[in-house]
Design a binder for these strands. Structure first.
Lengths: 118, 118, 118, 118
DNA sequence: GTGGTCTAGACCACT
DNA sequence: GTGGTCTAGACCACT
């Protein structure tokens, strides 16, 4: 299900969050559906359970999943909305920031070049 | 001195702010030097004095110029530092935001495409 | 709602800013609540829309309201915090400045007399 | 000549700076006049020489005195102007800050009460 | 002369 | 309808 690269510069728990979000947006993880438990995912992916827990805690904090002690973790009803809103907000912030940079005399080409080098 | 395009989508007062900043960064407007009065610039550029005033107020608020009622407007001692720091901060914010967008599953190409269309 | 005195030495737009802040601090304008539109307030108070706009722009710049073109102006989630922090900062600056004045040989009585005459 | 109180909450070096300034403003220490050496003042006042040095360094940094290695420290030609300008600047800052506090809804009485308690 | 505030009113893009 | 920008021009206090 999940495809993590432990050698990537992007932290594994961020990769996991991204993939859960991606699955929700694509309808592969609908509201109320259960996601793998920390322990099973840890075993399947050979990832330290603390890393899985860190990703799940962040998803829970953002209201994308909710955990029921003793039962497991489930996709919330508002998950799709929250993820969509979050991306829209970040893209809006990007537009605002780019506008400010252009006003500050930094060209689009300079900005794009910088992004390519991240 | 200043070169404004009233037909541009970028507001005239923002163009003026940018150009004052640019001149400061290039050393053409050193600390303590006086910039044209609201009225004289209004006449030279054929721009309403209110528009000039709006740009000058913003520059004053940001500490780049200081205006002395009855005397005129002057480049502050800290102008260069403030402008440089502001640009650095904005570029840092850009890096942070791009990282978050990448984690959110938006690709560099999508981001660059969006920037090109601003 | 708002109570402005056009004859006061304090500019009308500053009076308006103060009163919005006061209402926020007192909980009369909670986060996300909409404030009157530029035009409606202009009509109600018989104040030019540009003056209202000036106050709203400043409140927006400070993060106390956010304006959505075409929709209206709304109290931000952080409005209360921003206003409180700003006041605390200004009082701290006052303490520092007073200390420097005392060191410079200016007495408390002279300072208080000066304040009374502002 | 100088009258320092080691028990005061105001640091001794600040007391010394204040008194040099006061003497300059009153014309008791005219331009080019020599002030006591660090060592002699340390002995006369029974103050650690480092404390005297700290005050002199600050006065030198502000252009109020200049030290000639091997000869001693002297009041600069611009001392009086610098001290006067500094006090005027601080009083201007006070006016600005008080105005902002009043706009922020804090009353003169509250400000004066706070100052009395410093 | 200078900057700062304000009125009166137009036009724009956007919801 | 909404906010944002801009023109045209008046009046103020201050240098």
């Amino acid at each position: 299900m999940f495809n993590l690269d432990v050698l990537s510069r992007t932290p594994v728990y961020e990769q996991l969050i991204s993939q859960v979000e991606e699955f929700v947006l694509r309808g592969l993880l609908p509201a109320s559906s259960q996601i793998p438990s920390v322990r099973s995912l840890s075993a399947t992916l050979s990832i330290n359970p603390n890393t899985i827990q860190k990703a799940y805690s962040e998803l829970d904090r953002r209201g994308i999943i909710y955990s029921v002690p003793g039962r497991g973790c489930f996709i919330s009803d508002t998950a799709n909305d929250i993820i969509s809103a979050s991306r829209r907000t970040k893209l809006d912030e990007l537009d605002t920031l780019i506008s400010q940079l252009l006003i500050a005399g930094i060209t689009k080409d300079e900005i794009i070049e910088r992004i390519k080098n991240i």
